[in-house]
Design a protein around this nucleic acid. Structure first.
Lengths: 366, 366
DNA sequence: ATGAAAGCGCTAACAT
DNA sequence: ATGTTAGCGCTTTCAT
């Protein structure tokens, strides 16, 4: 039934019309005699006929399919973008081939197999500047880049405002009275890393705080790297009262390390994460973090791409999106006490970054 | 370049051969005169020719594409299966359309658009029995079901041994001397819920412990539902020393609730989760949980499907996979102390369930 | 070893 | 309103 091998011609024969009439019926655009239509529909039903998608692609020269590709598909942020893009795409009649490209070679292969072959009509690339993969970006293919700083050129971009996010996180700590604020970045080659870092630096600069090189350590997004950063600082004998980490996993590693050193969060050290991952509010202590509306941006990516497919000649589109500060319990004023009080209220029973959050400072309202 | 519109005939014309010879060259199967080949290859290069995937699909009647579909793409377990299946598929020359089908209607639509149209050759369905979507499973299409109990019928299954997992988790608590062991399930309609529940019940039964109805509460996988379950038990005035929850998020909610009631984990109450999610070892306390090798099973799903495509007539294949107990710090013997000691060692600095874990009890070795 | 012809299942353009 | 013809770009089959 669902896999009938009947063709448009079989239907035509059974209905006693030409195959073209059948085509007209199934496409419903042109009009056919109601009586004829009835007969055709009956034949379609009897044969369990369903139009062959590939033949349609062939005739139209379009597949209504695009690729969404990320270093992996499990990272929550990536998965979230893919999910949103896919669902938006499907609503618009497109399909999404999801593909993980952990390195530039895989990405190049992917482009070769899917784009050069014209299987897919377009490309959403998550984190295109994480390695050298951007070198393989096909120049004349509808492409949306997400999670990268816009660069001059022909691509459409969605930019999550990393720099502003880094600044907000740092400013939050500064407002709480902290001055010795250390920082753990992601891998250097990623755009968001350097942008968040700039945000941190500029906030510190504006506050008149100098940042010695050893205050900034490069992590790899893993909790372990957060843990190790704290160990390094201890080895150096640095004294500090706050840490800003570029993602929540490193924040969690950081907190674990601090605790292993007998220090309490936020009483002794405040910690701010980034991403506001699900369960951020369930860590101990509930994590203060920067939230980006990833789902929204995934949808936007799909929309941008679809618009681009409709109008290949349009100038490059750049979408900007801010991050919000979500204050929970891992940050407190430098003398302790006050923020801690806030905490007991927001000791939340909600799961994720999708749930309403007590303390959100939106960049927009600043 | 990558989007050249050159066809096989353009290449043929330029090389001064028939388009068929070009086909032979690009497919490399039959042999052609080395000199001719050279000329053709030159022409291909000059025109930036790349074979058109759709035309190939059309001629072959195959798309080398299948669908991988789950209620959502962000849940770590689902994403992990998809990632693994996709990467396995791509190695075998297949592409994967990822699709979220939050409900049965969406699933039905999906099947209609992708399967009835013969766009996709096969289907991997994650959690097919979470709602009524299985009613829309096309009967004669290569399909692999994962995350469901095998049922008589024509489908290939990958079954994560949920019942045994439920039993192991419960037995662990029983061995630690607990008798009042409460249980939080997932939604009733899901296979894994009832299977894990059976495991719990049978372990309790074997230990001669009776389970009053109020010991088992239905959650919805969210941390919040774990939190609420503990509140309900408090309202009932139940006394207990251990909780087994059917996933880690509910375990985390549970722990939060217990702490809000002034009880300590594991000193006062032991908690076992399920899934061994990333960062399970970073929760406070690090979570004892059941681990399934999801990545492995995702790969297997793709393999099964590919095998099925090669041999549609083969009898249904059922793959079984056990869960392992990962002991961390959220469980202790009923008098406290001992397990807590273990904990200080395994107060792990590793991130995820992929990292080596100190205490794994494999079902196989039992 | 190479070429010619037919066809995959559909749509589009033109005819009636 | 309906039928006819011609592709879409490739592979397969059959000649040469």
């Amino acid at each position: 039934m669902s896999r009938s091998t009947a063709t448009i011609r079989d239907v035509a024969a059974l209905a006693g019309v030409s195959h073209q009439t059948v085509s007209r019926v199934i496409n419903g655009k042109e009009r056919v005699n109601p009586e004829t239509r009835q007969r055709v529909e009956l034949a379609i039903h009897e044969l369990g006929y369903a139009p062959n998608a590939i033949a349609r692609f062939m005739a139209h020269g379009r597949t209504r399919t695009f690729v969404c590709c990320a270093p992996n598909l499990t990272d929550y942020t990536f998965a979230c973008i893919i999910e949103a893009a896919e669902s938006e795409a499907r609503q618009a009649g497109y399909f999404v081939i999801a593909a993980s490209a952990p390195n530039a070679e895989t990405f190049a292969e992917l482009v070769d197999q899917l784009i050069s072959s014209r299987y897919a009509e377009g490309l959403i690339v998550i984190n295109p500047y994480a390695d050298e993969r951007h070198r393989y970006l096909p120049p004349d293919i509808p492409t949306v880049l997400i999670g990268a700083r816009p660069r001059p050129g022909q691509f459409d971009f969605i930019y999550l405002d990393e720099e502003e996010g880094g600044r907000s996180a740092t400013e939050h700590l500064i407002k709480l009275g902290h001055t010795h604020i250390l920082h753990i970045t992601g891998p250097h080659q990623e755009d968001c890393t350097s942008d968040r870092l700039s945000g941190y630096r500029s906030a510190m600069h504006e506050a008149g705080i100098e940042v010695p090189p050893e205050w900034v350590i490069e992590g790899d997004w893993s909790a372990t790297s957060g843990y190790q950063a704290v160990q390094s600082w201890q080895a150096l004998g640095l004294s500090y009262s706050a840490i800003f980490t570029q993602n929540d996993r490193m924040a969690v590693g950081t907190i674990r390390a601090l605790r292993d050193q007998g220090r309490r969060v936020p009483d002794d050290v405040s910690v701010v994460g980034f991403d506001d991952m699900p369960l951020a509010s369930y860590f101990d202590p509930p994590l203060t973090s920067m939230r980006q509306d990833i789902h929204f941006n995934g949808r936007q990516a799909a929309r941008l791409l679809i618009r681009r497919l409709d109008n290949p000649q349009a100038p490059p589109q750049h979408l900007f999106h801010p991050a919000e500060l979500v204050i929970r319990c891992s940050t407190a004023s430098v003398r302790g006490g006050e923020a801690q009080k806030i905490c007991s209220d927001s000791y939340s029973t909600v799961d994720s970054n999708l749930a309403p959050s007590n303390y959100i400072y939106n960049q927009k309202e600043k």
